[in-house]
């Protein structure tokens, strides 16, 4: 078993920085590496766990340079160490409010207040809920959003995975190491996961696919016992008996704290121009949090580098 620890993120006594990055996922960490190498004092504020959503991915196989694939946590903790080595401060505090109009810009956190001459928003996304009856009730009682965390509780059990995009299929393949049987449910008539993942999941024993089906409810008494689905073509409704359900139906941006402070699209993703500039001068957005057509570690890393470079220029670096 691996022994995992991050560079111990300490409280920073420093309050004024050249650049503040919100979010320590791949986009934020990459931006920090570039800014620190440009000799700009750089702070990353992270609400939960450095590494972001990528750190909860069992294996990342499409990030170049790792022909055997690499564990999500291992990849992001390397990025984190690299950032710390170049002098970046990473502080675990949640951002509660921002003032982007003052100069320098002010970031209020759960613990403190910081100022930065430039800001990069790299807060990423969180797994979306389905918002169907029973979802709140059975959360933690059979419904989970983190396969790497909770898979062991479903050893030899029957599980439903909702969503056949990259996350759903990839996490489903991981879950199959534990679960006896997996039923995959997809709203669309086809899977959207990469072809290589589709092939791999179809080759597994005891997996079933219900495409063009919609989840209508989660059912059970004290704990989850089944997932009710509806065939979108025929309208037929039926119950899939299940001890567990893992939900991978897309991502919602972590931008609640920015409402009204910056321009967003209807889904709450931050709008940027091609230089990753937001509606506010001196504020950039990078990675999954912005309006984009692809949300991958590779794109996040590219965004982080670009945003850092352009911010450096703006700060007269």
């Amino acid at each position: 078993m691996e022994l995992i620890f991050g560079p111990s993120t300490q409280k920073s006594s420093k309050r004024e920085y050249d650049a503040i990055i919100i979010g320590a996922g791949p986009a934020g960490l990459t931006a920090a590496i570039y800014l620190a190498r440009a000799k700009l004092s750089t702070l990353i504020l992270e609400k939960l766990v450095p590494g972001g959503l990528a750190a909860t991915t069992d294996k990342i196989e499409n990030y170049p340079g790792f022909p055997e694939g690499i564990g999500g946590e291992e990849l992001t903790s390397r990025m984190e160490k690299q950032a710390v080595n170049f002098g970046v401060d990473i502080v675990l505090e949640e951002v509660l409010d921002v003032d982007f109009l003052s100069n320098p810009k002010v970031i209020k956190t759960s613990d403190s207040e910081y100022t930065g001459r430039g800001i990069i928003i790299a807060t990423g996304t969180s797994p979306k809920s389905l918002n169907v009856p029973g979802e709140q009730k059975f959360r933690g009682k059979g419904i989970s959003y983190c396969a790497t965390c909770d898979a062991p509780f479903f050893q030899d059990k029957e599980v439903v995975v909702i969503g056949c995009g990259n996350s759903g299929i990839q996490e489903g393949i991981y879950l199959k190491k534990f679960a006896k049987k997996i039923t995959f449910v997809e709203f669309l008539p086809h899977m959207t996961a990469e072809k290589v993942l589709q092939e791999r999941v179809r080759a597994l024993d005891n997996v079933e696919f219900l495409l063009n089906h919609q989840v209508t409810a989660f059912e059970g008494e004290e704990k989850l016992t089944g997932v009710r689905v509806k065939n979108r073509e025929t309208g037929e409704e039926f119950l899939i008996p299940a001890d567990g359900a893992f939900v991978y139906v897309g991502l919602k941006p972590n931008t609640d704290f920015l409402k009204g402070k910056i321009e967003m699209d209807n889904a709450g993703f931050i709008k940027t121009d091609e230089d990753l500039k937001t509606s506010i001068p001196g504020v950039f957005a990078a990675g999954d949090v912005r309006t984009t057509i692809l949300r991958q570690v590779a794109t996040a890393v590219g965004d982080g580098a670009l945003a850092a470079k352009l911010l450096e220029e703006e700060l007269g670096g």
Partner: peptide, 10 residues
């Protein structure tokens, strides 16, 4: 906890 849970140490 499980050892593979990134949120658990918090």
């Amino acid at each position: 906890v499980t050892p593979s849970c990134p949120y658990c140490p918090i």
